[in-house]
Simulated assay, not measured.
Amino acid sequence: MSKPLLKIDNMSIVFSSPDEADIEAVRQVDLSLTPGKTLALVGESGCGKSVTARAVLRLLDKNADVRTGSIVFTPAGEDATDIARLKPDSLAMRRIRGNQISMIFQEPMSSLSPVHTIGDQIDEMMTIHEGLGGKAARERTVALLDQVGVPGARERADAYPFQLSGGLRQRAMIAMALACTPQLLIADEPTTALDVTTQAQILDLLRQLQADFGMAMLFITHDLGVVAEIADEVAVMYLGDVVEQGSVFDVFSAPRHPYTQALMNSIPKMSRKADRVRLNPIKGTVPAPKDRPTGCAFTSRCPHAFEPCASVRPVRTDVGNGHHARCHLLTQAPVEAMA
């Protein structure tokens, strides 16, 4: 197995407030990414996916802090660096951010500058990190836009974000993220606001670019269909906890955590039967972060919850072939409880 490019170990992220108690938004997360592979981070909105990704680039809000754990980044041919120990505005972090690790943000319309052209924003990446001058940077920008499928790339480089469609803005964001050939690409729900046809084109593009550059990819989404199409491994988050992780095949075919099972059961299924089948939603609501149970975060919605669940946090249990889950049913309940 390849040596991890990025290894997150026991990372907790806390948001502080002068008026209320600190809120732990991400709790003791463990993740590992290897070159050429895609790890999908999935879960409901607000579960901590984007906060986890932003921590890797030290782009957290001022009241957020990586309270515990490490984020070890080991680029090819270089020594390991614990990103969690770097200051967000340090020279060492600025050398990594946008250069060795890049991010495609969730909404390109709000992430791109509305007062600068697409070309100027991509040019800037290469000027800062690679020292390319005006004409050389622009030629590289045009080539990148062409590579990601932007028609009329040279003319589009002079366009402002509001002059492009959603799909073209997303492609421009991808071109910007790839400007310095990063070793790790973080894609934060890059297809959420796109129509089905454009979504398929973007996924094909990301797969092709990953094959061309050999980069690792952290793909954040709540769409399990997208996960099945693009990812090698999947980590399922709930209320800041990674409750299950493993290969896409293992997690999808034999989910071991009740939350993952509920997610899989809630997917609408195509049927030839004349009778309409009701959707199977997950009952209950996600607790507020300040009301999170001491033990398993899914306790209040879990149909299998029993005495230790609310008070004792489950251990990360290996269920075989690198497949892990945090659930008391795996260590304390009878085998038939998981049937």
Rank of each mutant, 00 (worst) to 15 (best):
H257Q: 13
K7C: 09
L329S: 11
F105Q: 04
A297Y: 06
D82C: 13
A200K: 06
A288P: 02
L144E: 01
A333R: 10
S16L: 06
L218E: 02
P4V: 02
I220Y: 04
Q245D: 03
L194H: 11
L168H: 03
M270Y: 07
L330C: 04
L184Q: 02
E124C: 12
D89C: 02
G167R: 10
C327E: 07
M126S: 13
L33P: 01
V51T: 15
F162E: 12
A231T: 08
V150D: 00
R292V: 05
M237R: 02
E20G: 08
E107F: 05
K290W: 07
Q245G: 03
S110A: 14
P88H: 09
V226C: 06
A337Y: 09
I122N: 02
H304F: 12
R85N: 11
A235R: 04
C180N: 14
G36D: 01
K49H: 06
C296P: 12
V234K: 02
A25E: 01
T68L: 07
L6E: 04
L279N: 13
A216P: 01
L206M: 15
R67F: 06
R95T: 05
A153T: 10
I122F: 04
R171W: 00
I230Y: 01
S271T: 15
T191R: 00
A136W: 01
M173S: 14
C309K: 09
P114D: 02
Q147H: 09
E244G: 09
H323N: 10
R94L: 14
P314V: 10
N10E: 14
